[in-house]
C-alpha cells in the first residue's frame, strides 16, 4: 500500500529581524489512507507550522525552505499556488483550534457552506444546500434546517466546532488536518467531538492528522504518533507501542508528567527546565540540557533512526533498548506505562 501523504525532511523557517527561527527543521513522516496520526508536542514545537506547511498556509516572514511533501503521488511544494488551491478544501481540509477563525461571523451558515461546495464542484445551489444539510446531520447537529439559517454567534463553542468539521467534510476529503480542535472545549463536549470524528473517519476512510499538546487525547484516538520537540520529530511509531514503551527521554517524560489518579499524593515526574528558544537552540540534540541521559555523544545531532522494528527515534541513548529485559520481566502495567524509573 502506498502512502497517501509522505513528508520528507520538511523545513519551514521564519526569517525575522532577530534572526532565523527554524520552526520546523527536518520533519518526516508518512500516512496511509484512513489512518489517524497524532502529532504531539508542546507550544513552540512546530506542530502547527507543520500542519500549515502542508497546505501552503505559511505566511511571510515564514517560508518552506526544503524537503518534500508528496500527497497521493504529487509534490505539493513544486505544484505552485493554483495546484494547492485545487486541493485545499477539496482533498485536504483543515479544522482549526478556534472555530470562530474558520467561520465568517457576518455570513449565515448556509451561505458559507454552499460557497464551500461551489468552490470546487459545479452543482446547483439546491444540490449544494442539500449537501450542506447532510453534512450537518452527519456531525450530529439536530434540526439542521433551522441551524443552516443561523449565524455563527448563535452557536455554542462545541456546535461551532461541529459546523467547522461539517464544512471540512463537505467534499469528503482524503485528508483532514485538525489543529487542536478540542482544546477550547469542555470535557463532555470534547468527548462528543472525538466520538464524532472517530466515527466519520471510520465511515469515510478519511486520513487524519490530529495536532495536539495532549498525549492522553490522541492515545485513545490515533493509530500512529509522532512526537515533536523544537521543530523536529523525536519519536514516531504505533500509538500503543509508543505509549507503552517510549524510546525518547522526552516522550517518556511527557507521559510521566501527566497527572492522573494513580499519581495521587506522589510527586509528578517532571522534565526539568523549559523548552528552548528556537532562535538559540542548544548544540547537538535540542533536548540535551533537560535530559537525564545526555552525555558527550549528544553534542552531535542525532538522526531519526529505526531503533526497533517500526519504531523511529532521534536519540543516542533511547530508553527501553537496554531496559528491554527489565520491562519484559515486569508484568506490563495496566495503564500501559512501563514503570521503569531511575
Amino acid at each position: 500500500m502506498t502512502a497517501l501523504l509522505s513528508i520528507k525532511d520538511l523545513r519551514t523557517y521564519f526569517f525575522t529581524d532577530d534572526g532565523v527561527v527554524k520552526a520546523v527543521d527536518g520533519v518526516s513522516f508518512s500516512l496511509a489512507r484512513g489512518q489517524i496520526l497524532g502529532l504531539v508536542g508542546e507550544s513552540g514545537s512546530g506542530k502547527s507550522v507543520t500542519g500549515f506547511s502542508l497546505l501552503g498556509l505559511v505566511d511571510p516572514p515564514g517560508r518552506v525552505v526544503g524537503g518534500s511533501i508528496r500527497f497521493d503521488g504529487k509534490d505539493l511544494l513544486t505544484g505552485g499556488e493554483p495546484a494547492l488551491r485545487a486541493l485545499r478544501g477539496k482533498r485536504i481540509a483543515m479544522i482549526f483550534q478556534d472555530p470562530m477563525m474558520t467561520l465568517n461571523p457576518v455570513l449565515r451558515i448556509d451561505t458559507q457552506m454552499i460557497e464551500t461546495v461551489l468552490a470546487h464542484d459545479n452543482v446547483s445551489r439546491t444540490e449544494a444546500l442539500k449537501r450542506a444539510r447532510d453534512a450537518l446531520v452527519m456531525v450530529g447537529i439536530s434540526s439542521p434546517d433551522e441551524r443552516l439559517q443561523s449565524y455563527p454567534h448563535q452557536f455554542s463553542g462545541g456546535m461551532r466546532q461541529r459546523v467547522a468539521i461539517a464544512i471540512a467534510m463537505l467534499h469528503k476529503p482524503d485528508l483532514i488536518i485538525a489543529d487542536e480542535p478540542t482544546t477550547a472545549l469542555d470535557v463532555t463536549i470534547q468527548a462528543q467531538i472525538l466520538a464524532e470524528v472517530q466515527k466519520l473517519c471510520a465511515e469515510t476512510g478519511t486520513a487524519l492528522i490530529w495536532i495536539t499538546h495532549d498525549l492522553a487525547i490522541v492515545s485513545g484516538l490515533a493509530d500512529r504518533l509522532a512526537v515533536m520537540y523544537a521543530g523536529r520529530v523525536v519519536e514516531e511509531g504505533e500509538t500503543a507501542r509508543v505509549i507503552e514503551r517510549p524510546l525518547h527521554p522526552y516522550t517518556k517524560g511527557l507521559i510521566a508528567s501527566v497527572p492522573q489518579g494513580k499519581t495521587r499524593g506522589a510527586r509528578l515526574q517532571q522534565i526539568s527546565g523549559m523548552p528552548p528558544s528556537l532562535r538559540n537552540l542548544p548544540k547537538g540534540c535540542a533536548f540535551r540540557p533537560r535530559c537525564s541521559r545526555a552525555d558527550e555523544a549528544c553534542l552531535e545531532e542525532p538522526a531519526l533512526e529505526e531503533k526497533l522494528p517500526d519504531r523511529k527515534t532521534r536519540c543516542f541513548h533511547p530508553w527501553s533498548l537496554d531496559d528491554a529485559r527489565d520491562t519484559r520481566r515486569q508484568a506490563p502495567s495496566k495503564d500501559g506505562m512501563a514503570e521503569t524509573t531511575t
Partner: peptide, 20 residues
C-alpha cells in the same frame, strides 16, 4: 467516563448527550 486516559488500545468515546 470521558477523561482521556492512556490506554493501550483505541477507546470508543461514550457520550453524554446535549450541551450545558
Amino acid at each position: 467516563a470521558e477523561i482521556p486516559t492512556f490506554e493501550a488500545k483505541k477507546k470508543s468515546y461514550s457520550v453524554i448527550k446535549g450541551e450545558i
